[in-house]
Design a protein around this nucleic acid. Sequence first.
DNA 1: TTGATTACCGGCCGTTCGGTCGGTAAATAT
DNA 2: ATATTTACCGACCGAACGGCCGGTAATCAA
Lengths: 182, 182
Amino acid sequence: MLAAAVRLFNERGYDATSMFDIAESLGITKSSVYHHISGKEQLLQMAMDRALDGLFEAAGEVKALDLPAPERLERLVRRSVLVLAERFEYVTVLLRVRGNTEVEQHALSRRRDFDAILTDLVKQAQAEGGVRPDIDPATAARLIFGMVNSLTEWYRPRTGGAEAIADALTRIAFEGLRTAER
Amino acid sequence: MLAAAVRLFNERGYDATSMFDIAESLGITKSSVYHHISGKEQLLQMAMDRALDGLFEAAGEVKALDLPAPERLERLVRRSVLVLAERFEYVTVLLRVRGNTEVEQHALSRRRDFDAILTDLVKQAQAEGGVRPDIDPATAARLIFGMVNSLTEWYRPRTGGAEAIADALTRIAFEGLRTAER
DNA sequence: TTGATTACCGGCCGTTCGGTCGGTAAATAT
DNA sequence: ATATTTACCGACCGAACGGCCGGTAATCAA
């Protein structure tokens, strides 16, 4: 049921999806939906938590690695792409909330926490050398993860391996588009 | 009035913004709003057009330049950042629509046209050399512009020059985060 | 077999929304 | 001074929404 709801949220947007729509897509009535969940917001909450848990899990694993910071940064970028691909629809929901309700604001708060972890990792990588120090760490972190998050706009899980995308993305992020000579 | 509406759209989302909200923020009544415009969707339409016109204008100007493709690509990326900063709220609205109505689908169609222009430019740049050929042009175009578009998520026009952001972004996009040696 | 739990349903309620309509007051033109 | 256009308003409408309630049918435990 969560899956059905999330699919509709992404198709039409959270606000534009009615409880009737969700019920209809499951072949039951609206009343029956309320037998299983407490309300529309709970579905949103569950979806966002699923996405956030995946991201923090990835961050935790990478943190535990005994590697130089630039290496850890690259791993986290790559892992984030894979989490996004795995939990695609949930992450898509997460990245669209505007903070209108308390539930949404709590999710935004967790996103900011994740952001802080990233910024810190970039900062470390710059300090250790291996990542260019001429870009503000917070800006770099946001740009790189802006690129990652933009996947929700066009990537479709069916299309093919998330690894190929992760490769292309990390290559651009760390080596850039420009070829060495010309 | 368009500016007031767009501000609210971005604060709470298009669906969550009522015509009453818009009227209230202008100090007039809902009925008065309808004296000036035909409906809520027209406001959305106008906002999205303002954003799209800016982007296509930038694309047209860059196309007219007598420069190698990689150079034109970099200019377009930079110009896009500046357009996004200039027409920030309008672009933000544009990048949030899901295609629920005909008006929205028309905007999405124009976005796809812009995307095609970009992909083509990347392809040319790869053919001329100067941009790494080992990444699918469509993927590269989407990732780079995903990074650009992600600015709507955190950039705030007040904060400071858009040029600084444009510098950081093009540096990452073309040269990458990694330093040459370490 | 019986009792309880679980899944489901039709019908309803209060609210909010986008939009309309008839009419008034101010500004502008003649 | 008068006519016309422009800006605005209060009251209202039908539709859609999230959610609730009382009740029924199926499932399952004893």
